[in-house]
């Protein structure tokens, strides 16, 4: 029977697996596979598992709970091993690597910040900043919107100006946050956000990050919506790439 894997912790971490409920319907019972001083937190993989809201939430909940008790290496959603024996073999095989990672991430959590332009405010700003665009906008408006070709050309210039504004906005959001992080991973522009940044921070510095974000909101809140998510299991900091970056 295949085994769904949530994450890897140290064997001596508090593992009150009984409190945890896993993926599937009804939720699978969560247990541990112990080997090499490590423990993989797993459950029996349900048939036909897909990325449904319920299962994504279950995956996240298990990891959030584990992170509350200590260092955890979160698996990407949907990781399935053939058997518990395979999981144990993997813990043995890569024990040094996992041990190092767990040490690095001790008392650290991920905080993710996403910022999205408030479109009307952003458009207003690019027109305010660029006299040429503003004049063209007035001209098109005076002529009842202009021809389709004119509207297209104008819209393309606006899109370019917005892209430039996004890049500057991203810098404005990310730069002050870097000061609080031990590692930084820039994520993709999900849902059109202008900044998607994950910070690895010490638990003691969570308040600093929250304050920094409040400061950013005070300064930029009319132009962009800034969301702070965390503390989270360190999803963005468990790959080799993240370690060197």
């Amino acid at each position: 029977m295949s085994t769904y894997v949530y994450g890897i912790v140290r064997d001596n971490e508090v593992l009150d697996a009984a409190k945890l409920t896993g993926v599937g319907e009804p939720p699978a019972e969560v247990r541990s596979v112990r080997a090499a001083g490590l423990a993989a937190v797993v459950s029996t993989a349900p048939e036909g598992l897909r990325a449904k809201r319920r299962d994504l939430a279950a995956h996240q909940e298990v990891l959030v709970e584990l992170a509350r008790h200590g260092s955890v290496l979160p698996m990407r959603f949907g990781s399935v091993a053939d058997s518990e024996e395979e999981v144990a073999a993997e813990l043995e095989r890569s024990r040094d690597h996992y041990d190092r990672l767990l040490t690095t991430l001790e008392d650290r959590v991920e905080v993710n910040v996403k910022a999205t332009h408030i479109e009307e405010a952003a458009l207003r700003l690019v027109l305010t900043e660029d006299e040429g665009l503003r004049a063209e906008n007035e001209r098109l408006r005076a002529s009842g919107g202009g021809t389709p070709a004119e509207r297209m050309a104008f819209g393309e210039r606006v899109a370019e100006a917005l892209e430039d504004l996004r890049a500057r906005g991203s810098e404005a959001v990310v730069r002050p946050l870097r000061a609080h992080a031990e590692q930084v991973v820039i994520g993709p522009p999900v849902d059109g956000c202008l900044a998607n940044v994950s910070l690895l921070v010490h638990r003691d510095r969570l308040d600093d990050v929250a304050q920094e974000v409040n400061g950013l909101r005070a300064a930029l809140g009319e132009l962009m919506d800034i969301r702070l998510n965390g503390p989270l299991p360190p999803y963005s900091f468990v790959t080799e790439a993240a370690q060197t970056g």
Binding site: H59, R76, S79, E86, E90, P188, S236, T239
Partner: peptide, 19 residues
């Protein structure tokens, strides 16, 4: 808000499959 992290980040172990 954190869907991209759960789906696209996190540890990947080559010998395991993914749904």
């Amino acid at each position: 808000e954190v869907l991209d992290l759960i789906l696209d980040k996190g540890l990947v172990i080559d010998v395991f499959a993914r749904v």
